[in-house]
Nucleic acid binder design. Sequence first.
DNA 1: GTCTATATCTGGATAGAC
DNA 2: GTCTATCCAGATATAGAC
Lengths: 207, 207
Amino acid sequence: MVKPISQTMEKTEKISTEIKILAAAEEVFLKSGYDGSRMQEIADLAGINKAMLHYYFRSKDLLFERIFEQKFSQFFPKIQELMAMPISFTEKVCIYVELHINLLRQNPYLPLFVINTVHKNNDFVKKMPLLLMSEFAKSYYTDLAANKVKDLNPLQFLMSVMSMCVFPFLSKPILCSSINISDQDFDTLMNNRPEEIKRYVRAILTP
Amino acid sequence: MVKPISQTMEKTEKISTEIKILAAAEEVFLKSGYDGSRMQEIADLAGINKAMLHYYFRSKDLLFERIFEQKFSQFFPKIQELMAMPISFTEKVCIYVELHINLLRQNPYLPLFVINTVHKNNDFVKKMPLLLMSEFAKSYYTDLAANKVKDLNPLQFLMSVMSMCVFPFLSKPILCSSINISDQDFDTLMNNRPEEIKRYVRAILTP
DNA sequence: GTCTATATCTGGATAGAC
DNA sequence: GTCTATCCAGATATAGAC
């Protein structure tokens, strides 16, 4: 590694070039993906020269990897504390729904970006620790033993909950065109969505 | 239009070049999208020369449009007859689930292809007639008046049903990596999925 | 560290022989 | 209709002055 690590943060007032590049790269890559993004576009947005991108990150591939690893870890909300809480499976799922939808409302490009990248090269995902499902499943079986939830396939169920959270953001353009609604309408829809999903979750899980 | 229309179908035994190109283009574009696809790759797969692609379809854009329009119309299952049937809303939704999942099992690349294309250029979707939602909603309100279904937001509900059908195919790589399952395991999961979703649908809709 | 200029390569598109 | 050869724009990457 011959990459410089930002070492002049305390001396200068202005934001370091490295940070500016990372911010610009994030914006461009998230909106357009790897193939659709141009180094020139990133340079323009960062207000610097194309050559600087290579000076700091060597290649488009390396810059992209840096962005992806950072964003992928944000794709699912943090649920460690959630799992440790002394609440029922149903309640955990309800809180998860709220966390995930709020996260996606703030990062609407995240799902398509992550899915496309993994689809093209699933080596990316192999490096990531992803124990979300199994953590949830444990909690489910505890409550099943206590007869607090209906007997079903937890994998299918959790897949369904995630689907209901994530898919609307992926299909937004089709949805808005097909039923002719505006961006504001969509936002209200997503604002009401956690409550709606939570009703479904309770209807499905109640024994 | 100076494009030749395949006129030698009845004389020759061999498949016309136009058909071969379309088949190859479909495969490549579906797997890699517009940006990720190369004209050379399509030519190789069709077993012909790159120049022929331009002879028949003039440009990459036009060839892509041709493929997209054909595939987009397949993205949602045909539901006209379904709507005309004298069955309840709940039953219609259940049949829809089965139709859509079977369709996607046969065309697993379709969702990502359609979503990416529309995301890049939503002019594509504007040309398409998409009255799936409103047809379903009408049926819902009929049954609501007869007290046969619970009172809820039909748009949110239908969005949820579609999410549960489509999203697993989009997230397959992440899912398989994260819980460490094989392609066969995924296929069994999708084989069982319609029954599982139909259980959820009944639990949510039953008053 | 930052710039300009340039090298190099890739990929879509065309010309022209057959 | 089909091919080979080639053109040319656009994009990544590097060289070298400051």
